[in-house]
Nucleic acid binder design. Structure first.
Length: 201
DNA sequence: TTTAAGATGTACT
DNA sequence: GTACATCTTAAAT
């Protein structure tokens, strides 16, 4: 648990120009911070998934499908792509150059700052490990919503900071929840910190 | 304008 | 294991 965020340094924008799969790995161990009128909360990113639009049947931007919804994926790397799934908002970091619709879905974080606010926002949850271990859970816990669509992640109120190099090993495997995505469902484009208790199941 | 499906989460059997 | 909440997008009528 951090007592202050003042020591944190915003992730350098050059990282977002790396290949998408590299970014998915490098974001692990970084800190995602959201500031709201309610307060500021933050978590360590412990699980990600890569979506590489043109060649990825599981992506909303498969074969460069460009619609009002996917527009942000075609924008600058280092901005956000948000998607509403049933009652939940899912948060992605846009990667790839302009007009290359690629993104990294943040699937889970480990609460590290203002966990009281996170518990309040997830009031029905009793176990801390269940507060943020899913893509819809962490957005609710941190107060991220559709108003953050297209936001630049190098600026307040929503930003990503570098942190300690992850102590645990990065492992990969197939992505989750895309059973009808043909061959793409088997691509090992999900990355997480081994043995971390806050990774989704 | 109507309909169907979804990168999920929670409650319940 | 199954049901369903609840809403937007996008495709079909």
């Amino acid at each position: 648990m951090l007592q202050t965020l003042s020591e944190l340094k915003c992730l350098d924008s050059s990282i977002y120009h790396l290949p998408t799969l590299d970014i998915a790995k490098k974001l692990l161990g970084c800190i995602l911070i959201k500031e709201t009128t309610e307060g500021t909360a933050a978590g360590i990113i412990v699980e990600t998934e890569a979506y590489i639009g043109p060649e990825d049947q599981a992506s909303h931007s498969f074969q460069n499908r460009r619609t009002k919804r996917t527009e942000a994926m075609f924008g600058r790397p280092g901005t956000t792509y948000m998607y509403t799934m049933h009652t939940h908002n899912l948060f992605n970091v846009v990667t790839g150059k302009i007009d290359q619709p690629e993104a990294v879905l943040i699937r889970a974080v480990e609460p590290i700052y203002n966990i009281d606010l996170i518990r309040k926002r997830r009031s029905k949850i009793t176990k801390d490990t269940h507060l943020t271990n899913g893509p819809g859970k962490l957005t609710k816990a941190l107060g991220i919503d559709m108003a953050d669509y297209g936001h630049d992640l190098t600026h307040s109120p929503l930003w990503i900071a570098s942190y300690n190099t992850p102590t645990s090993e990065v492992v990969s495997g197939p992505r989750i929840g895309i059973d009808n995505a043909g061959d793409a469902k088997d691509y090992p484009w999900r990355f997480w910190l081994k043995h971390n208790k806050y990774v989704s199941k």
